[in-house]
């Protein structure tokens, strides 16, 4: 990939603007249709999965909702489907390009984390900041673990050498960790309407991008 210094909107591999996109002065394309669809579908599936989990787990909610069989069915279905949007997204070159960006940590990502710990406002970042990269990697590992332990709970005799109580132990505690991390994710989005605009419309304001993601635009 060639450096893009000196240019704000040079078409990049995997993020090629469609005709017409270049004619929006002051805006930059950030997420294509695939990224936004994957994010929206995953978000809804996660909402169903976590919502039903809460109704199965917390006594006050369980007393309010009851209907254990249907709640369990929704939980199982949304849990099974949760990885599907991302897997379908892999067919898209631009989605794969964003995954590559999330995977690689540049020198400025370490600097971003140091400055984040010191609560400094201005932090260098590429298209994704180091926090977003860590979140993506962590949740990308947590969901398969939940899927695996969930399947072990669902089909008791699947792997007889793993006690069901061990699967439940990991499923319960990791669920709690995911809830905490999701609250953080949603809180970050809540605090930055301009970033949410990017995920909603696909475009972000140029000055926001220069401020928050200077190493993205070059």
């Amino acid at each position: 990939m060639t450096p893009t210094a000196g240019s704000d909107r040079v078409p990049r591999r995997g993020n090629v603007p469609r005709p017409g996109q270049e004619q929006r002065p002051g805006w930059v394309p950030r997420f294509g249709r695939v990224q936004r669809l994957v994010h929206r579908a995953t978000g809804w599936l996660m909402a169903f999965c976590v919502g039903t989990a809460a109704c199965l787990y917390f006594p006050p909610l369980a007393e309010l909702v009851g209907r254990r069989l249907i709640v369990v069915a929704v939980h199982e279905a949304s849990g099974l489907l949760l990885p599907v949007p991302v897997l379908l997204g892999l067919f898209s070159a631009s989605f794969r390009a964003d995954l590559r960006r999330l995977n690689r940590f540049a020198a400025y990502d370490g600097e971003w984390l140091r400055r984040a710990l010191k609560r400094l406002r201005s932090r260098p970042a590429g298209k994704f900041n180091a926090g977003q990269k860590l979140y993506a990697a962590w949740i990308g590992g947590a969901v398969p673990v939940m899927l695996f332990t969930g399947l072990l709970m669902w089909f008791g005799g699947l792997l007889p050498w793993i006690p069901r109580s061990s699967a439940i132990f990991v499923h319960d505690w990791l669920a709690l960790a995911i809830a905490a991390v999701l609250v953080g994710h949603i809180r970050m989005a809540h605090r930055d309407p301009l970033a949410r605009e990017g995920m909603r419309t696909g475009y972000v304001r140029l000055d926001w991008a220069r401020e928050e993601h200077p190493n993205w635009l070059g």
């Binding site: 990939m1 995977n103 020198a107 990269k133 860590l134 590992g141 398969p144 332990t149 699967a167 132990f169």
Partner: peptide, 25 residues
């Protein structure tokens, strides 16, 4: 520096979470 370069920390974190899950079991 291109965003495609640098250490694959994301992959390492993801695999570590998977390993932690297995260790937890």
């Amino acid at each position: 520096m291109s965003e495609d370069e640098g250490k694959p920390i994301g992959r390492r974190v993801l695999l570590s979470v998977l390993a932690a899950g297995a260790a937890g079991i």
